[in-house]
Design a binder for these strands. Structure first.
Lengths: 342, 342
DNA sequence: CTGTTAGCGCGTTCAA
DNA sequence: TTGAACGCGCTAACAG
């Protein structure tokens, strides 16, 4: 086992096998134009030397790195962790690796990270969950590789994307509450400046009220930051209002579960006194009691489909639909009176 | 804005700026040996051409890629997602990027992924949460870059690692239950074939019983797979036993929360009838009612410290402690009678 | 302070 | 079926 220190190269293998480096390259890349006997010689030399192909050199020569970049808001959030798993599974299936960067949804970081990823010559870029501005477009356009958006969309329709219809989903959730007979329906959602997630959900909520002839009441709306703590305070505040809602659409599961607890802490029951419906369907939703009724978003699929779409672009395969909208559905569990089979 | 198609190179910039490529290289790499005036010229040429340095070429020439590989069991699990966030934050701080691969703790995948990562010439490797076998060692030894383990240890002490003392943590958790006055204490843990997580926790549990003169009862032990569903069945099974335990150490938070619910579903209360203590302290633990008392494991820190350690090795900095054992602590919440300040 | 010149390890013609 | 030679884009001596 005479492994050389400092990297065995294709030349060493060629020498050891008594062939040229071109031949070694051929067997490594599975070229059919190699006599079985020589192939065998080379393979043995590779094994003897413990040769490990240098992907960087290969990348420089071939202009393909078989790695894609992923810019993500926060890998530690249940939503994006699951989405990332979808991405990685498909990437792995197509023999790509992924470089992951957390942006915390800060525009400057998003831009800088995208730039870095492009410098690393990724074969494609996946941009997740954040708004695409002209500054983003400038970078993406300068990329010589495809860019696909996931869990967000390009308002200008310039980049392909995979997402769900947020407004419709929020509409559906709110309407479900209305169908349950509620007329005072509260809303807890993220900062309305977030045009990708919060605002569309807010719009969906309002649209549902309007359709059913219910008036929109500003005092029934609270803004949170998607985290548990903020859900508690938002709900407490709603409960303390002059005329509290009998149902609340909470545009984020963590906040929704918090809302349930806030209601319970106030000595009331869910869904007895207040119905709660969430958004996302992260594992937490079904790991609490009462289990949370929520909008089920296909997180894994969004990632998987986005990655699959990216592979098509990278291989110049034709793609039929550039803006994929995956279906969502309502998952009725125990925090609303409407149950699964009703 | 005359951006050339097909990559602007350092040569183009040199020509545009009227200097040699070496000079361009110098300003890109922030070498101090460049006259301010020249630097300015180059910088402008770079901007005009929209030049983006090719990190692959740089990697080949410099033999450093500023990226590290991460082999992780499952990024979608709350535990590893948080740990990964710690890794990425520190990596980012030191200007490294991370390539993440899910192994699902399958040895073959672990080996194959490590190999791929090494081929990609990562500057270092982080191996997480799984057992290190001789086959792993063979690959790691063949790597010309440092390898650091996180949330696992090398039984042979060959590789540096960052983890907690699992056995001690389990001992502490079990002892807390004993101190509460329980004498029939159950255990729900992972498959004992897992020598990194499950077995040490099992040992700690037994050690605590022994220390306090309690006999170990096989019939009070159940095996799960760390997921919610398995926690439900394990607890149901325990409750159905001839003489059920009055307290259970559940070696995983998701299963622990499930255990709470199983107790409640049986019409009993936690901690009134049964005390439950978990392990890990993932967000879920404090997002359910009653809130779960558990062993708090510094997940983020394990990742952060491991990455920091890796940077030291990559830069040949001296390191004092090769086997870092981070402190754990008991977080008493509501699923045990012992509370925070008692 | 700046330019010249070798490679880095491999893919890929083009001939043989 | 195989080999020789060039080039991918950049870093790193070494001169000057």
């Amino acid at each position: 086992m005479e492994k050389k220190r400092g990297a065995v190269t294709i030349y060493d293998v060629a020498e050891e096998a008594g062939v040229s480096m071109a031949t070694v390259s051929r067997v490594i890349n599975g070229s059919p134009n190699v006599k079985p006997a020589t192939r065998k010689k080379v393979l043995e030399a590779i094994r003897r030397l413990g040769y490990r192909p240098n992907a960087v050199a290969r990348g420089l020569a071939s202009k393909r790195t078989t790695t894609v970049g992923v810019v993500i808001p926060d890998i530690s959030s249940a939503f994006f962790a699951e989405l990332t798993r979808g991405i990685e599974d498909i990437a792995n299936m197509y023999h790509y690796n992924i470089i992951i960067c957390n942006s915390d949804q800060q525009k400057q970081k998003e831009l800088q990270l995208s730039e870095t990823l492009l410098e690393k010559q990724v074969d494609g870029l996946l941009f997740l969950g954040s708004e695409v501005t002209d500054e983003h477009r400038e970078i993406f356009d300068g990329a010589l590789v495809p860019v696909v958006l996931a869990a967000t969309v390009d308002r200008k329709g310039k980049y392909p994307s995979v997402s769900i219809d947020q407004k419709q989903a929020a509409f559906d959730a709110t309407e479900a509450l209305i169908r349950e007979g509620h007329r005072e329906i509260g809303l807890i959602c993220g900062p309305l400046t977030d045009t990708i997630n919060a605002y569309p959900r807010y719009e969906g909520y309002r649209a549902a009220l309007e359709k059913h002839g219910l008036s929109f009441r500003e005092d029934l709306v609270r803004i949170g930051d998607y985290r548990y703590r903020s859900g508690i305070s938002a709900m407490e505040s709603l409960l303390a209002a002059p005329s509290p809602p009998t149902a609340v659409f909470v545009a984020g599961d963590e906040m929704a579960v918090a809302a349930i607890h806030a209601v319970q802490d106030a000595g009331k029951s869910v869904p007895g006194d207040v119905s709660i419906i969430g958004f996302d369907d992260i594992p937490l939703a079904s790991q609490v009691r009462p289990q949370l009724s929520t909008v089920s978003v296909p997180m894994y699929d969004i990632g998987a489909v986005a990655m699959r779409l990216l592979t098509k672009y990278m291989n110049d395969e034709p793609v039929e639909n550039h803006e994929v909208v995956l279906p969502h559905r309502l998952e009725f569990r125990e925090s609303t009176r409407t149950r699964g089979e009703d």
